[in-house]
Design a protein around this nucleic acid. Structure first.
Length: 465
RNA sequence: GGAGAGAUGGCCGAGUGGUCGAAGGCGCUCCCCUGCUAAGGGAGUAUAGGCUCAAAAGGCUUAUCGAGGGUUCGAAUCCCUCUCUCUCCGCCA
C-alpha cells in the first residue's frame, strides 16, 4: 500500500475542540444521552501528548527559522557560516522526528473525534429508543375503508405497473421497476414537489452530481463512520489504475517516498443533502447571502448493509430511491426558526396531496449522527395501520459547517461558521407508496391526487392495462 | 485519448533559493483635507492553530502562495506525484 496522505495539522474536528478541552465532562454527558460513550481517558492522554509535542515541535521550528535567517544575513555580508551550520546540524533530524510524532498524534486524535456525533439541542427529549420519540402534532384524518385494504405491493402488482421480480432480474433485491402511468406518477410527484419548493417556498433548484468524493461525505458526516452504507465507485478503471500504480511504485520517487498516489474513489450519493450542503464547503459567504435555500431532485443510493430483514417487501427500503431534498445554509441565530420553517415546507407537500401524517420529535437515542435536533414526518399507511417515516428534517447547527469549514462574514467582518439544515421534501418512493395505499379503490384502481392531475395530462385514475 | 499553458491574499497581479505572509494596483474600513454631484493625503485591511492571560485585550510562536512528498541550514521559487483550470486536436450524448 502506498502511504496515505496525513490529515492537515489544523484538522477537521467534529465538535468544537475548545469546548471539548474546557468542558469535557459536560460534553461527554450530553453524548452519553444519545448513546455515545466518549473515551475520556484516551482523549485526555492524546490531548496531553498533542500539547507537549506541538509545543516542542514549534520550538524547534522557531529555532530553525531563526538560525536560517542568521545564515541568510551572514551570507549576504560574506561572513563565515560554518559555526552556524554546526549549530543546526542535529536540528533537522530532531525536528523531523518531532513533526512525525505530532502528526501521528493529531491523526489519532482526529480519527477519534471524527467518530463523535453532534451534541443534541436542549429541547430534544432524552430517550433510549425510538419509542421515546415525542409526537408533536398530527394532520389529517386517516380514511375509513369499507373494503380490505391492500399494501402498495399488491395494489401496484395487480395493476401490472409495479414489477419487483423483473427488477430483481436486472439488479437484485431491493430495486424496483415501475411502468406506465405509475412511473409517470412517480415523476409527477417529484415535479410537483420541486415546483412547490421553488415557486412557493423560495428554494433555488439545483442539478447536482450523483457521484461525490470522500471530502464531501466527510463534510456532511457520512464518512468516516458510515462507509458501509455507501456505494463506492472506483474513480479510474481498475486496469488503468493498476498500470499507473505499477509504474509509480517502480519509480525512483516512490522509493524515495516523494510519491503520492491518487487512489480516491467516488461514492454514489446517499442523499442530495451531500452535494447541496457541500456547495458551501471551504467557502466564506457574504452575510447578505444568507439564508441560502436549495432544493434538488435526485436518486439516492444506499447499501443499507445493516438493515437486511427490515422492510424486505415493497418499495419502503430500496438501494435506489428518488428524493427531493431541502437544504438551508443559515445564520447561527436563525437555525431553529429555519428548522420549523423547513419542516413546514415538507408538511405542505403532504397537505396538498391529502395524506395524513404526524410530526415526531426524535429523542436523543434515535437521531442521526450530524443532527442537533430532528423532526421526522411520518405518513399514514392504512395497510400497516401505522405512520411510517417519509421525511426527516434536521438542524445540524455548526457540526457540518465545522467539518466543511463553511463560514460567513459576520457584522464585524470576521468569519464565523454557518448553520446547516436539511430535510426530505419528500422521499418520492415512499410518497408513492402512501398514495397507492391511501388512494386505492375497491376495484383495484388508484385515484390520482388532484394536485398531481395537471402533471398527468388530467389522468384521474391508475387502472389495469 | 493526444499536445501545450497555468493555479499566489476579497479581486487583479509581481515575485526562479534567504530579511517574503508575500511588491504594486483595485476593493473595503477609519482619519484628514477639500467642498457640490468629483478628487487628494494618511493609516489599516488573510486564515487557522499552539503557548501565555481568571477572561477580554495584548504578548510570544507555528503553519498556510492548488494538494501531498522530496532536496536544502533555509522553498512561493528547485525536483517528483496528484488534483483542478484553460487552449488546440480527436472522440462523444
Amino acid at each position: 500500500m502506498p502511504p496515505l496522505a496525513l490529515q492537515p495539522s489544523n484538522g477537521v474536528w467534529m465538535l468544537d475542540i475548545q469546548l471539548l478541552r474546557s468542558n469535557l465532562e459536560d460534553v461527554a454527558g450530553l453524548l452519553a444521552a444519545r448513546g455515545y460513550s466518549f473515551p475520556i481517558p484516551e482523549f485526555e492522554a492524546l490531548e496531553s501528548d498533542r500539547k507537549s509535542l506541538q509545543t516542542h515541535t514549534q520550538e524547534l521550528q522557531a529555532r530553525r527559522n531563526a538560525v536560517s535567517k542568521q545564515i541568510g544575513n551572514a551570507k549576504s555580508k560574506g561572513e563565515d557560516i560554518t559555526h552556524l551550520l554546526a549549530d543546526v546540524a542535529n536540528l533537522g533530524e530532531e525536528l523531523r522526528l518531532a513533526e512525525t510524532r505530532l502528526q501521528e498524534t493529531q491523526a489519532a486524535l482526529q480519527v477519534m473525534l471524527l467518530q463523535v456525533p453532534n451534541l443534541t439541542h436542549t429541547t430534544v427529549p432524552v430517550g433510549h429508543s425510538e419509542a421515546d420519540n415525542r409526537e408533536v402534532r398530527r394532520w389529517g384524518t386517516p380514511r375509513v375503508f369499507d373494503f380490505v385494504v391492500k399494501d402498495h405491493v399488491s395494489v401496484g402488482e395487480n395493476l401490472g405497473l409495479l414489477d419487483f421480480s423483473t427488477a430483481a432480474k436486472l439488479s437484485g433485491a431491493r430495486f424496483s421497476l415501475m411502468k406506465g402511468p405509475l412511473a409517470r406518477l412517480h415523476r409527477a410527484l417529484a415535479q410537483f414537489m420541486l415546483d412547490m419548493h421553488t415557486g412557493e417556498h423560495g428554494y433555488m433548484e439545483a442539478y447536482v452530481p450523483y457521484l461525490v468524493n470522500a471530502e464531501s461525505l466527510r463534510g456532511t458526516g457520512q464518512l468516516p463512520k458510515f462507509e458501509q452504507d455507501l456505494f463506492q465507485v472506483p474513480k479510474l478503471g481498475f486496469k488503468m489504475k493498476e498500470g499507473v500504480e505499477e509504474r509509480a511504485l517502480a519509480s525512483e520517487d516512490y522509493q524515495r517516498g516523494s510519491f503520492s498516489p491518487s487512489d480516491e474513489s467516488l461514492y454514489l450519493i446517499p442523499t442530495s443533502e451531500v452535494p447541496l450542503t457541500n456547495i458551501v464547503r471551504d467557502e466564506i459567504v457574504a452575510l447578505e447571502s444568507l439564508p441560502i435555500k436549495l432544493t434538488a431532485h435526485t436518486p439516492c443510493f444506499r447499501s443499507e448493509a445493516g438493515s437486511y430483514g427490515r422492510d424486505t417487501r415493497g418499495m419502503i427500503r430500496q438501494h435506489q430511491f428518488d428524493k427531493v431534498e431541502l437544504v438551508q445554509i443559515v445564520h447561527p441565530e436563525k437555525s431553529y426558526e429555519a428548522l420549523e420553517e423547513l419542516t413546514g415546507h415538507a408538511e405542505k407537500i403532504l397537505q396538498k396531496l391529502g395524506l395524513p401524517y404526524r410530526i415526531m420529535l426524535l429523542c436523543t437515542a434515535d437521531m442521526g449522527f450530524s443532527a442537533a435536533k430532528t423532526y421526522d414526518i411520518e405518513v399514514w399507511l392504512p395497510q400497516q395501520n401505522t405512520y411510517r417515516e417519509i421525511s426527516s428534517c434536521s438542524n445540524c447547527e455548526a457540526f457540518q459547517a465545522r467539518r466543511m469549514q463553511a463560514r460567513f462574514r459576520n457584522q464585524r467582518g470576521k468569519p464565523e461558521l454557518v448553520h446547516t439544515l436539511n430535510g426530505s421534501g419528500l422521499a418520492v418512493g415512499r410518497t408513492l407508496v402512501a398514495i397507492l395505499e391511501n388512494f386505492q379503490n375497491e376495484d383495484g384502481s388508484v385515484s390520482v391526487p388532484d394536485v398531481l392531475q395537471p402533471y398527468m395530462s388530467g389522468l384521474e385514475r391508475l387502472t389495469a392495462g
